[in-house]
């Protein structure tokens, strides 16, 4: 094979007259692919509380808090910062109540709080948060 100098000459000249391949990310956004595995979303109406999703989660990112088993009152506590976005829970769910959103994927924050997300019917979540607040207050007041 012939040995030559500057085999990439054509490339570099062409690229002078071409748009750079770089994407200026925050200003320039490409549409996300359909199958993008972004944030987990949960539809409480279909859930039976079987906990199959939790069993196989590789990173303990989801917890199902049972408020009332008979009335199917559940709250899903989802830790975005632990989630590995593998979608195993979506596969495991037999009632199709879990899904991964393809739009919300920019997950940056300076502290950890926004990463704990509660899903559920509004009144259930409110009830749970209130209960937790009460418990916390009780705990801190109690021991000393």
């Amino acid at each position: 094979m012939k040995i030559r100098l500057g085999t990439m000459f054509g490339d570099i000249i062409r690229s002078l007259f071409r748009r750079p391949a770089t994407q200026l990310y925050p200003y320039e956004r490409r549409p996300t692919p359909e199958r993008l595995r972004g944030n987990l979303v949960w539809d409480p109406s279909k859930c039976t509380g079987c906990q199959l999703c939790i069993k196989d989660c590789p990173s303990d990112a989801i917890e199902l808090i049972v408020l009332d088993k008979v009335a199917k009152k559940f709250v899903l506590r989802y830790h975005q910062d632990r989630c590995t976005y593998c979608a195993q829970c979506v596969v495991n769910c037999r009632f199709k109540c879990l899904n991964m959103d393809d739009q919300t994927w920019e997950l940056a924050s300076v502290n950890k709080e926004p990463f704990t997300v509660y899903y559920g019917k509004d009144e259930d979540v409110a009830f749970l948060l209130e209960k937790m607040a009460r418990d916390n207050a009780g705990e801190s007041g109690c021991p000393e």
């Binding site: 692919p33 199958r35 593998c86 991964m100 393809d102």
Partner: peptide
């Protein structure tokens, strides 16, 4: 990415098949 939804760690496999 368009096939699996991820650029790395595609999570294609399940035990017994693919997703």
């Amino acid at each position: 990415e368009s096939l699996s939804g991820n650029r790395v760690n595609y999570s294609v496999n399940l035990i017994g098949g693919v997703k």
